[in-house]
């Protein structure tokens, strides 16, 4: 189970929804989409949700609804087939049928989206006289639509890289907590304020203990959530940069102040 743990730690969340995740599981284990081993798939699906929770990613409601339907289907497949008095077996509808229909339908459009993506990639290389790019570009600066944005997964991966090289300090005696998220928020804001940009990796001092690194990372996530800083990555596997966000006002963020009060 350890290997599943490792795997689901970072892959979860890149899925577009429960159907996407199910298709991935089916494809990975080379299962027949028309004859899904419901018990196995349910188990793996739940393992992924577990991984998501561990990452502290809010598991979207849709994923939970699908988990419930999977369990329902599973329980129905376990029920004995009812036999009629005349000896003929009742043509019971396969409880998986609805799910299969949905998966097949979704897969069609997922594939079509893949074709569109290839087309778009080709168009993105073409320019008009005057240097204007051919594809509709930058008209809506909406984070939900843009591929170039750093996802939480990229950030967590980069963070895991940093943590990996850090030995776990031997515990000789318990110390009180020395770092707080609001403190780190202030530090990052100071650094990113007035248009500053720095590397994600620079955020973490080489000698800093794990506890401090984790608190710093939480502070960064909070700031990104509040749009006070932005994470930017220019290409796949490229360095992640942190820069000051759009939120007005250079003072300490409100949330930080609130947290301090409640602390």
């Amino acid at each position: 189970m350890a290997s599943v743990d490792e795997e689901c730690r970072f892959d979860v969340g890149v899925f577009e929804g429960p159907l996407d995740l199910l298709l991935y599981l089916i494809h990975r284990d080379e299962l027949d989409i028309y004859d899904i081993p419901i018990e196995k798939i349910t188990r793996q699906y739940m393992a992924y949700l577990e991984g998501m929770k561990r990452l502290d990613i809010d598991v979207a409601g849709e994923f939970l609804v699908m988990a419930a339907s999977l369990m329902l289907i599973k329980s129905r497949t376990l029920l004995p087939v009812e036999r009629r008095g005349d000896g003929e077996e009742e043509e019971e509808e396969d409880p998986r049928l609805d799910l299969v229909r949905q998966l097949v339908e979704y897969k069609k459009f997922k594939d079509a989206a893949g074709t569109l993506m290839v087309r778009e990639a080709g168009q993105a290389e073409c320019y008009l006289a005057g240097g204007e790019v051919v594809i509709a570009d930058g008209q809506a600066d909406d984070a939900a639509l843009r591929l170039a944005d750093v996802s939480i997964i990229d950030l967590v991966k980069a963070f895991a890289e940093i943590l990996k090289n850090r030995p776990v300090a031997p515990i000789d005696h318990l110390k009180p907590v020395v770092w707080s998220v609001p403190e780190k928020i202030d530090a990052i804001v100071k650094r990113a304020g007035s248009g500053g940009t720095f590397r994600f990796t620079e955020l973490f001092d080489d000698k800093a203990p794990r506890g401090e690194i984790i608190v710093t990372f939480l502070a960064l996530l909070e700031l990104i959530r509040q749009h006070k800083v932005k994470a930017r990555q220019d290409g796949e596997f490229a360095e992640i940069f942190i820069e000051g966000g759009d939120a007005p006002g250079g003072g300490p963020p409100e949330a930080a102040a609130e947290q301090r009060e409640t602390a």
Partner: peptide
């Protein structure tokens, strides 16, 4: 390189899937 331009922003997976469904 000449225009000193970045690669244009591309659509996300969820945007492409939604577009595909609408298109068809």
């Amino acid at each position: 390189a000449l225009l000193k331009a970045d690669k244009p922003a591309r659509l996300s997976k969820s945007a492409l899937e939604t577009l595909a469904i609408i298109a068809y």
